[in-house]
Design a binder for these strands. Structure first.
Lengths: 129, 129
DNA sequence: CAGAATCCGAGCCGATACTG
DNA sequence: CAGTATCGGCTCGGATTCTG
């Protein structure tokens, strides 16, 4: 796949600051963050709305996920003082800007998902017998 | 940041298959995989060469990281039967193709690293006192 | 409605020691 | 040279229960 290579600078990829990418991977590489960001990209949502939409996430984990995303500036949390209380989560400008590389990743994942599954099976077949 | 919004389809982001992106995030979201892929993008490397270049990774963890990347088809492993033995790791075509979205992510991470650190500090300042 | 408290199990990371 | 074996610690995810 030489065309892929053509997209790179002569020296390949420069990984001089692993700590930098770690800050992103730590936040976004977990089980639910990408999913939550994807849903907030469709529309701002309240807590239980997100909980219903995603379905198989516990409130505990959703709470932690949202707070971490808020902590790193991907998501904003605004409290409307009503009864019953309403808390709305939305993407910050930084959260919006992250959607572009995120979309690249999702597209790549979808395009290569079958290849990954096949590679896994081939590897297992080569090890077992 | 409406320009970011303009890059998206009307409905935002479609997260209909969370399991698909999980297959990628599971492999690439860990502590070392991106770093290893970045170095193999520069040149194929042998085990101890990678170990020296990366520096602060144990042989144990490097071994596991490489095997998982091999298992999912990002990396190839070829044994040259010599004394002393030589094992060369290189990117597969799929591994090469992954460099493009990966580069997007790295660029974004570098561009927003300071903003993330600032957001973290602001959040901590808002909670503590 | 929007969480917090608590406890559990799984998996990853790391260091050290050993092997063909 | 290129790993494996073993053990420990830590964090993450999940289920359950309780609160303002």
């Amino acid at each position: 796949m030489d065309r892929a290579r053509g997209l790179l600078p002569p020296e390949g990829i420069d990984i001089t600051e692993p700590c930098v990418v770690r800050d992103v991977a730590d936040r976004v590489g977990d089980r639910w963050s990408l999913l939550v960001l994807g849903h907030l990209a469709n529309a701002p949502q309240r807590f239980n709305a997100l909980h219903r939409i995603i379905g198989d996430i516990s409130k505990q984990v959703l709470s932690r996920t949202l707070r971490r995303l808020e902590e790193d500036g991907f998501v904003s949390r605004t409290v409307h003082d009503l009864t019953p209380p309403q808390v709305e989560y939305a993407l910050t400008p930084m959260g919006w800007s992250f959607l572009e590389p995120m979309r690249m990743l999702l597209d790549w994942a979808e395009a290569h998902h079958n290849a990954i599954v096949r590679a896994r099976n081939d590897f297992a077949a080569g090890q077992k017998p």
